[in-house]
Design a protein around this nucleic acid. Structure first.
Lengths: 235, 235
DNA sequence: AACTCCTGTCTGGCTGGTTGCTGATTCTTG
DNA sequence: CAAGAATCAGCAACCAGCCAGACAGGAGTT
């Protein structure tokens, strides 16, 4: 099975880089003109589609959901960002004014720092190591996003859900008494919006996984008993 | 319909940045120690999963397919890179040796330049503007990848295919006598591998679109008559 | 205690995956 | 350049998986 490799390799590279860049970048960004440290409550909006894109964010604590809302009322999740993720980098794109086109919402209680794109650009020009660190941060984002694409190209929903759960384990997993707990309060609806399915289907599939003894759900937090065993459940 | 906005906004930001960074970056990377200009024939492998990740690539001409191969023999496409895309950036991740886990294949005849990650890192430290440009290049990658995630979360295959065709128009479209031609020779199988479907289904759906007069296919090149009209075909 | 949001379950209906086969196109190689 | 090989496109029949819609009971909130 090839998935575990992905999961573990991304995990190590991710955490190594996180450890190095996360802390240092925080310190650097905090010193920039116009920077701020923000606390956002679960469910509150960070930016809306159409807002001018002028700040760059670094997520310090918690999770942020980037989503896209359609007129139909449907909403899909484009990314679930974990700690040490850079976002809002669109604003770094050269010169011309641009607008956000995603909806960014605090998925948990969030602690983040932000600074105007112009300050960040100056900081990079002043000290190249800043650029290097941001480059590494962004590389992680690319990897993370591409893993999600892998997840979404699985044809049957069962594989897709399993793959997604493993991604969540990688990004939000904390060791539990037995297995790994995904440290997010996930509704079935939220999962459905992330993997392009429906609430009902997720309910059924999670039910199946539970009765197979693969996981436990306690107050919206999912615990995977054995990620490796779960990864074998690919069809 | 909201897709056209995405397409157009990404398109403008993409092309503006491409124009600025593409040319300059080429010149810079060409000067680095150990850099090279490579021509790769259609279908040839650029790197394999498991290869050591030590070079960074900038695609100058053509298209590169990043994919993942499973034991089952199944292969899925993670990204179709267009001109001016940076790839192989994984190798920039700090210090520790890492291996590729994607398969990179020239999807068309490809012209690209590459340089050792170490040289690139030095170049960034020497001149911060290099870092800034790469950052912008990578931001585009993130946007591009996230658009693909949007595509993949459409539930019905018809919308998914249409959305994918519009992405291809954005990235590989060239004006034609009537409409826009996607400048890639795409087999139905290749499309299926990119959007998580099957060859048979793609054949059927493309047939439908053709008989609706939305597109024309001539020797594996697809011409979309009216992208805006096509985008209205979302369910 | 009233309310909202979430989970669980059912039925019917249809989309899209699967398999198998045929003819067309494109590529390779003598 | 032509013959053979390989890949590709199109079609049909079958059936499973998933969506839609609806409703009832539970958990968490104020």
């Amino acid at each position: 099975m090839s998935f575990p490799q992905t999961a573990s390799s991304s995990q190590t590279s991710g955490s190594v880089t996180d450890a190095i860049t996360g802390g240092t970048l925080t310190a650097i960004i905090r010193c920039l003109a116009g920077s701020s440290l923000d606390l956002v409550e679960r469910g509150k909006t960070i930016f809306l589609p159409g807002d001018p894109a002028e700040r760059v964010y670094l997520l310090r604590c918690g999770a942020v959901r980037l989503s896209r809302v359609y007129e139909s009322g449907e909403e899909i999740t484009v990314a679930l960002l974990r700690e040490n993720s850079l976002f809002g980098v669109l604003s770094l794109l050269t010169g011309h004014r641009s607008d956000r086109f995603y909806h960014a919402v605090a998925f948990t209680r969030v602690e983040m720092i932000s600074a105007p794109a112009a300050s960040v650009r100056q900081a990079i020009e002043a000290d190249a190591r800043v650029g290097l660190m941001m480059l590494q941060g962004l590389s992680c984002r690319v990897l993370q996003t591409e893993t999600m694409i892998e997840t979404l190209t699985h044809r049957d929903m069962s594989s897709r859900l399993v793959s997604f759960l493993l991604v969540l384990c990688r990004d939000f997993g904390v060791p539990a008494d037995q297995g790994i707990t995904i440290d997010l309060r996930l509704s079935h609806q939220a999962i459905a919006e992330a993997i392009g399915s429906t609430r009902v289907t997720i309910t059924r599939l999670l039910g199946d996984l539970r009765s197979e003894g693969m996981l436990r759900i306690d107050r919206k937090k999912i615990t995977i008993f054995d990620p490796v065993a779960l990864s074998r459940r690919f069809s």
